[in-house]
Amino acid sequence: MNIEFLTELNYDNQEPPQTIIIDIDENSSIGELLSKIHEITKIPTYSELNWDGNIEKISCRYYFKSGTEYEEYQMIRDLDQKICDFPKNGVNGELSLFIDGSVGLVN
């Protein structure tokens, strides 16, 4: 299936999304799909925060495009949810995801 994805959401200067073809059954979980995307794109699944001698790995957050406005994304909270349950709001009607690997907004 075709997947559209972004790795940065920048309201002022948005890069166009990338498109990727993933061989997966839409009855699989969104988590499986995301693992495949990580595998192919080499986007790390976590980044590190460090302060006062602590180091903590923080997971990527995943969002799906929930509406037609360009900034309309909602967080994916359940990685076991089926791919086919998600709306397809990409430019060409594909599933559109935002993989947020930055650790901005630590709180």
């Binding site: 699944t45 903590e56 997971s59 957050r61 995943y62 630590v106």
Partner: peptide, 22 residues
């Protein structure tokens, strides 16, 4: 947690030192 890691410090069980949000 997602991918076995917390999704932010707010979403962790860790102490969060005094700070400003955002």
């Amino acid at each position: 947690k997602q991918n076995n890691f917390f999704t932010s410090i707010a979403n962790s069980n860790l102490a969060f030192p005094l700070h400003t949000d955002c």
